[in-house]
Design a protein around this nucleic acid. Structure first.
Lengths: 232, 232
DNA sequence: CGTCCTTTTGAACATTGTCAAACACTGTGG
DNA sequence: CCACAGTGTTTGACAATGTTCAAAAGGACG
């Protein structure tokens, strides 16, 4: 592991408060690697040998069953993925592939578990991160079960808008086909959903989204902090 | 907290390995209460003052949005719920109500967090439990996004059969209307789905399910350990 | 300029939800 | 014991939603 990568990793919530000694112990067996786009880093069902950290680029987590595939989440820098599998020493539940050229750190899972047991600060950070992940998935389930696809799209746009600074215009950070998969619908259906949102003042040109009547869209989308807030 | 309840709680994975001293510290501020059926114990959005443990009976976790409601999970003895909210000191994401007469232990969230920081065994147990919960929700999301309602029902039946001992006949442990909500469909749709499964050898009489052609149902349902196994 | 891939559109189809009514089951009070 | 109310379940007709398939249109890139 090159020295130059250490600060990025050390700066993560997960590693910020732990002792230097334990941090070095973790990094000793770790390494950092550059991957081209569209590389499958992990496959669901594989044993969880490494905790992964996205240092740059982005990684899509997805799952397959019976010939179908769905996008579960997108991991952006700097954050970890498959923490739960690492902790439980259980097989991955999701596959992961790079979306673009990405720099990924790999930390041996058994080291993570070992340091967890001797460093209370690290343990606290892990449990906080994991609780955060859990709550995100619960919110996603609520989104899926309580809303129609049009409502999911509307709220996605509002979340994205907020994340992009809150302006009336912003860019979609992913392909529409993958957005469709994230939202649990087909690309065709998404295309029609965008069209249907025109009546609420949403205009889409390529990846650019313009919201002309904020209040109207919000009245339709009815965003809720218990579903749409990333942080809490 | 009556002495007689302590062994049940102590026997939970979560509290099994921690020191006696810390366990007593946790129990000091806790109490146990009996609730009649259909009592709302917690409401989504409320601050998470207590970690809840179901000692007997059962509790349904559900969520609402825009006048709709969906059942998220059923908690059976002896297990905890809303662990993530307790850890993060964040509002509940789900509401909880008793389904039957139930005995519930309440442990102050701040005590849980305090003991977490000083008892490594307890911390380890919490993180394992939380990782387990996380993986359950991920599996549920895969179930929802990758399968049709008929496939979800089929796999639910196979899981339930396994859980009931594996015999060709078993009872549904919940009302059909709630099963429908758990599976993300309407009661009417569930009723028709049961009828459609007749062609795969599934017969339903009241709450009793009989599977006459196991292989045929499995060929249709295609259960996967990465979606349907509770334990891993 | 072609080629490849994504996105959009249209039409047919499948699935699921809604509404209303009938039916079944349970427990109550006469 | 039975009538009855209340609730859960099933059924049918219909509407809304979502998917599939095929084809056209648009963009990115050599």
């Amino acid at each position: 592991m090159p020295e130059s990568d250490l600060p990025d990793i050390r700066g993560l919530h997960l590693f910020e408060e732990m002792s230097d000694e334990h941090f070095r112990a973790l990094m000793r067996g770790s390494y950092v690697q550059n991957f081209p786009p569209q590389i499958e880093l992990i496959e669901e069902g594989d044993p969880s040998d490494f905790l992964h950290i996205v240092l740059s680029g982005s990684v899509e987590l997805f799952s397959s069953w019976n010939g179908r595939e769905t996008s579960m989440a997108t991991v952006r820098p700097v954050s970890t993925f498959i923490l739960a599998a690492t902790i439980k020493d259980a097989p991955y539940l999701m596959s992961g592939r790079t979306l673009e050229k990405s720099r990924i750190a790999l930390i041996p899972s058994q080291d993570v578990r070992a340091v967890f047991d001797i460093d209370a600060k690290f343990a606290r950070a892990i449990v906080t991160e994991l609780a955060q992940c859990y709550r995100s998935v619960v919110k996603n389930t609520k989104d899926l079960k309580l809303r129609t696809s049009l409502e999911r799209l509307s709220n996605f746009l509002l979340r994205q808008q907020k994340y992009s600074g809150g302006g009336a215009e912003f860019d979609l950070p992913l392909e529409k086909r993958r957005l469709a998969s994230v939202l649990g619908m087909t690309p065709e259906n998404l295309s029609r959903a965008f069209k249907a949102l025109q009546s609420y003042g949403v205009k889409v040109t390529g990846n650019r989204v313009a919201i002309s009547d904020q209040k109207d869209l919000e009245r339709f989308a009815k965003p809720s902090p218990l579903i749409d807030d990333y942080s809490t």
